[in-house]
Simulated assay, not measured.
Amino acid sequence: MKKYSVIIFLISILFISCTEQSKMPVSIGNINSVIVVVRDGVSKTQAAKTLDSILTQEIYGMPQSEQLFDVSYVTEGNLNDLLKKNRNIIYLIISDTVKKEGIFKSEDVFAAPQTILFIRSSNPDSAQKLIQKSEKVILQALTNTEFRRIYGIMTKSPAIELKKKINQNFGIDLQLINLFFEAKSTNDFMWLRLETNDYSQALIFMKEPFNAENQFNPAHIRSWIDNTLKLQIPGQFEGTYMKIDDSVIKVKVDRVIINDIERIVFSGLWGVEGDFMGGPFRSHTFVSKDKSSLITVYAYVYYPNEPKRDLMMDLEAILHSIKYN
C-alpha cells in the first residue's frame, strides 16, 4: 500500500506595515461552517463522501444531535470574491495532473481569520485514504480558525479584573470576555456566569492540594467534581444540586496536551439531582505549574430545547486558551 505523508504548509501572508495588516477584511460565514470547493464530478466520489462524513459527524456529549460543521459545496467556477472571504474553505482537488499529494494549509489569504485547506490527490482512492488518515489534522485546522475568531472578540473586551483574580487564585491565564460575572468565589473555587434572557454559559474553577499521583486519574477527578458541584452549585429547589449525569450517555475521557499542559478532559452531560435541568459540559483537569494543586476548569451551557454547539464552542475556546502564568 502506498504511504501518504500529510504535508502541512503554513503559508503566512506578510505585510509591509501594520497599516496594511489592518486592511485585511474580516472573514464571513456562519459559526462552524465550511465551504468545500470541488470540480465537476468530484463531489460524487467516495473521497468527497468521506470528507463530508468527517465534517458533519455528531458531536459527542450533546443532549440533542448536532454536527461538528455545517457544510456547503460550490464548484470552482462559482467561487466568487465574496465566497473567498469565508472563514473556512477546503479545496478538494483530485486530478491526474497532481504531482505532489497531501494537505496544504494557508491562513488569512482573502480575509482574517481564515483557513484554506487544499486536499490534493491524483485519484479518488488515494484521496479517500489521505482524508481518512488526516481526520484529526483537518478538524483541528478548522476548529483553530473558530478559536481565533472567538479570541479576536474576547481580546477587544477582556474581563481584566476576573482574569487577574483567576491568575492569583489558580496560577493560570486564559481568554475571557467581560460579559462574565462572578457568581460565587472562595480561595479554591470560583463560579463565573454569563446570563441572557435565553441561555446561560458558565465556568467553574476548582482546586485541591495535589498530594499523590493517583489524584490525576479519571475516577478521582469524577468524584471530586461531583462532590464540589453538590456543595457549591445548588438547584432552584431545596435539596437539589448540579451533578455529572451519565444516565443517557457515558462521560468521554481524553488525555491531551494543550499549551504544554497535560490535561484529562471530560465531555458529557450535566444535570440537577431532583430536577429536570441539564445540558452539555466539558472539563479540563491538570496539575498546577508548581505541582502543589490539582485544578479543574468546568464549563457548561444551559439552553433548553435549543442548539448548543456554538455556545459550547465559545467555552471550549476558553478552555483551550488556558496556560500557566
Rank of each mutant, 00 (worst) to 15 (best):
Y151V: 07
I261K: 03
L10I: 10
V71D: 08
N123E: 14
E135V: 06
K105C: 11
E195D: 15
F210S: 01
S292G: 08
G77S: 10
I54T: 08
T155G: 12
N144V: 02
F237D: 11
P280A: 00
S43Y: 12
S95A: 12
K85T: 13
I103D: 08
P25L: 00
E238N: 13
S247V: 00
I233Q: 01
Q140L: 04
G271S: 01
S95W: 05
E58V: 15
F286W: 01
V98P: 12
I13Q: 08
R148W: 06
D260M: 03
Q64M: 13
T285N: 11
E306Q: 15
G274N: 01
P63A: 08
K243H: 02
I31G: 09
V42M: 04
K323T: 11
F9Y: 12
V137K: 10
F15P: 01
E101W: 08
Y324R: 12
L79A: 05
D245C: 01
A219Y: 05
I172F: 13
I103L: 12
L315E: 07
Q215H: 11
N80A: 05
S27A: 15
K23R: 14
L10C: 09
E182K: 07
K207R: 12
L294D: 05
N211D: 09
E316N: 15
N144Q: 10
M154L: 10
S33A: 13
A317T: 14
S72L: 09
S95G: 07
K105E: 13
L10E: 14
D188I: 06
R39S: 15
R263S: 12
L139H: 02
W224D: 03
D254V: 03
E262P: 13
P25M: 00
Y303P: 08
I116N: 04
P218A: 10
V37L: 03
D52C: 07
S12F: 11
P280T: 00
P307R: 01
K207N: 09
T143M: 08
I89H: 06
T285Q: 03
D260K: 06
F104S: 04
D254E: 15
